[in-house]
Amino acid sequence: MRGRKAVVGLCAVGGIIILWFALTSWFGIIPAGRFPTPAQFWVALKQIELRGYAGSTLVDHALHSLRLIVISFLVAVGTGIPLGLLMGWNRRAEALINPVFMLIRPIPPLAWIPLAILWLGLGDAAKVMVIWFAAFVPSVINAHAGVRNIDKSVIEAARMLGTPPLRMAGEVIVPASLPMIFTGLRLSLQASWTTLVAAELVGALVGVGFVLNMAQQDIYPAMILVGMLTVGVLGWATTFVLGLVERRVLSWSLQGRG
């Protein structure tokens, strides 16, 4: 079943590539100035990897962006999940934090960019802060909902078994919330990538977002496509790794079985 799914997926990607050839190189339906041909894309890819573009090679740009993503994602979920768990378990904490959270939540992460630059300058710290704001929200919401949706009788069973508070948190509340927490992690990762490119469009000297910015200024569609596809591939790869972790951690659950 899984094998067949992979084949179907590869066929779809192959189909799009053929369509790309057909629309640009073969029949010229889309003019080359609007969208690059596969050959132009290949030239741009070779150029950025061999000679560099926007100051670095593609691998260096990609690694820099990836590093930013990993740091920001870890900071965001490292703060968001505990906060969500606390709000889910403790009514007083919820009453205290939730109103503030609801007020901050609708502010688009990119609206923090001016403040972030003002506070932290043009370096990576400002970008981490902006991504943190984006990735933090889904982690909080899902950890909160995860605790709230725990089957009441499971908590009662743990209380009946005389579970001390720390073990209650570590061996009951957290594992019971894990399926929802992982939903939050996936959304947080998605939000991290979405925000990264935008954050790098402003005041970066290296990174995939910076490549996109430079390519736009140079009116270089093939390089824009290289940048976009790099984000796509990196995003897919990180999601794939997260999926592996999830399957490992949730091996006990019904969802983890499929």
Partner: peptide, 27 residues
Amino acid sequence: PGADRAVVFQQFALFPWKTVRQNIEFG
């Protein structure tokens, strides 16, 4: 609540993330 009064629930209320052995051992 306390372990001197053990409860068996209609919906079992096992810990799904623990094996059978770990469930029994927990208390």
